[in-house]
């Protein structure tokens, strides 16, 4: 009886939905997170950025009012400017420094593991810890400034965390310290992926090492650079903890960043509509960076 039934089952295609059932059940978290949280949450935020929600979200449409207000808020403008400056400088320096360190480590050196461990360990630390240490080192009364003045250079001034014009530099020093290790590792993996024979060939051709890097190696590592770029960029947009720990946005509002603006607007100033508009702008920024990249990836795949 049962074998007869099985024979019949084997002859007939199973119902579409039930085919691969365990797999579909196991995919439920992914579907919920993807559709429910990522897509649903994003749409929800965008929709509510067109309302006048304050303490609680509500659907009272006000068109682009929130955006107009946002772009006439000085604090937001400062945040955007800071993010742009920090972003560009940190991007360039992280990539250069990361590649430079990777190239150094790739020169068949001794103690490679030790050096790599040293360059990468800050990446294991949180931005809070990073920010607090550098806040201490950059402390004008006890830190670098005071030490150098103590050496006899009494006119020496370096107090980025207390100087609105320099505060971004303070953030950069800490941010680079924490983040370059990651890029170095990625670049190193890219360098290691390059065929040894390429090096032999350039050696035979008598091309100097620095030139080999620029003419041969870097062009070959384009995908690695792109990955690193995307990683760094998406990290920069999220910049928040470091600022909170190092400066709390100060002095004044000179080191505010968008992520902090959103948090403060949503949870301390309880101006939800404004916060949603600001976070939607962050999303737009990311999209502007990502869409060309995604398009590039897509086109490469099609070829």
């Amino acid at each position: 009886m049962s074998s007869a039934r099985r024979a019949r089952d084997g002859a007939r295609p199973p119902i579409r939905l039930l085919r691969n059932l365990s797999s579909k059940l196991a995919a439920i978290p992914m579907v919920l997170v993807g559709l429910g949280v990522f897509v649903g949450g994003t749409i929800w935020t965008i929709v509510h950025s067109f309302t006048d929600s304050r303490l609680l979200p509500r659907l009272n449409w006000v068109g682009f009012d929130q955006y107009e207000r946002l772009w006439s808020t000085r604090r937001w403008l400062v945040s955007i400017e800071n993010l742009a400056v920090y972003g560009i400088v940190s991007l360039v320096l992280t990539m250069c420094l990361g590649f430079f360190l990777a190239a150094l480590l790739d020169r068949k050196i001794r103690f490679e593991d030790t050096f790599r461990t040293i360059f990468l360990y800050p990446f294991a630390l949180s931005f809070i810890v990073t920010g607090l240490v550098w806040q201490w080192i950059l402390n004008p009364d006890f830190g670098i400034q005071s030490v150098i003045r103590g050496l006899g250079f009494s006119g020496f001034n370096f107090d980025p965390l207390y100087n609105p014009d320099l505060v971004i530099i303070g953030l950069l020093i800490a941010g680079l310290w924490q983040g370059t290790g990651l890029i170095m590792v990625i670049m190193l993996a890219g360098l290691r992926g390059i065929d040894e024979d390429i090096w032999k060939a350039t050696r035979v051709d008598g091309i100097p090492i620095w030139k080999t890097y620029i003419v041969v190696i870097i062009p070959m590592m384009k995908p690695v650079f792109v990955t690193a770029l995307v990683l760094v960029t998406s990290g920069i947009v999220k910049l928040y903890d470091l600022v909170v720990a190092m400066t709390s946005g100060g002095p004044g509002i000179s080191s505010e960043v968008p992520a902090k603006f959103v948090y403060d607007t949503l949870f301390t100033r309880q101006n939800l509509g404004q916060g949603f508009a600001a976070s939607t702008m962050m999303l737009v920024t990311v999209a502007i960076i990502l869409i060309p990249w995604a398009y590039m990836q897509y086109r490469e795949k099609r070829q």
Partner: peptide
Amino acid sequence: GKNVTWEEPSK
């Protein structure tokens, strides 16, 4: 002699 078009591999 058995139609196994949709049968599990192990069976």
